[in-house]
Design a binder for these strands. Structure first.
Length: 242
DNA sequence: ATCGGAAGTC
DNA sequence: GACTTCCGAT
């Protein structure tokens, strides 16, 4: 089964992992012109570059194999020649409160992405996001979702069994509103397929706007309790689609 | 190594 | 706002 998944992976995931526009801060947002650290990390992980950073054993987990080299790469990207791991890791720790990342305790240089929050945290506000505005104007209650890096099929966590995850293989080429979407269940190959759809796509499993917005508010207001287990956050994903 | 406060940059 | 820089505490 694993080898099937591995070979399918090459088909389903291009080497460059792209994100829909709304996964990024909008252009008018201050500081948005700069690459964000989590973009950069996902970019390196997506193309398995160099080995300064690699995916870990769990879904979303990554290990920094060469902290100072990673810091140097990050510094080059940002034009900060004196970047080092001490500073980079401080930036990573600021992601804890934003719920983009958390630390894998006990594992050296190991952190874990929270992909569900990663998208939601960066989901733009209702009046300024074309995709959402459109779906509201069309009187639909669901919004398109979600985006993930390329490694989903390698280590399907047991908690995900029976669920499938929508994946964007890329935004639509400019001048069209068509985009090829890849859907994949990490544990059930029957649910793997690609399809060309209109942008934005309405997921067959709908994610109500009020739920998305409500989650946004909850995230903005910060963690409700400090002992909340981030590992269970993926449970907010919609159920298997048909 | 990891954490998080405080002040500074763009 | 998203870091960068510095650093004392654990």
């Amino acid at each position: 089964t694993l080898s099937i998944l591995l070979s399918l992976n090459k088909f389903f995931f291009p080497s460059a992992v792209l994100f829909p526009d709304w996964a990024y801060k909008p252009a008018w947002s201050p500081g948005s012109r700069q690459v964000q650290l989590w973009h950069f990390l996902l970019e390196l992980l997506g193309r398995g570059e160099g080995g300064a950073i690699t995916w870990g054993s769990e879904w979303g987990e990554f290990v920094i194999r060469d902290p100072e080299r990673l810091a140097k790469l990050w510094g080059e990207r940002k034009g900060k020649p004196h970047m080092n791991y001490d500073k980079l890791s401080r930036a990573l720790r600021y992601y804890y409160n934003k719920r983009i990342l958390h630390k894998t305790k006990g594992k050296r240089f190991t952190y874990k992405f929270n992909f569900s929050k990663l998208v939601l945290v960066n989901y733009p506000s209702l009046p300024t996001c074309p995709q959402v505005r459109e779906s509201v104007l069309n009187n639909t209650t669901s919004v398109p979702f979600s985006v993930f890096p390329s490694q989903l099929s390698f280590n399907p966590p047991s908690v995900d069994r029976g669920k499938s995850f929508p994946l964007f293989s890329g935004p639509p080429p400019s001048g069209t509103n068509l985009s090829e979407f890849s859907y994949l269940s990490p544990v059930n190959p029957a649910f793997q397929f690609t399809q060309t759809l209109n942008w934005p796509v309405k997921s067959s499993t709908e994610w109500p706007l009020n739920r998305v917005m409500g989650l946004q508010e909850r995230i903005k207001s910060g963690p409700q309790d400090k002992n909340h287990d981030n590992n269970n956050d993926r449970k907010i994903f919609p159920e298997t689609m048909h």
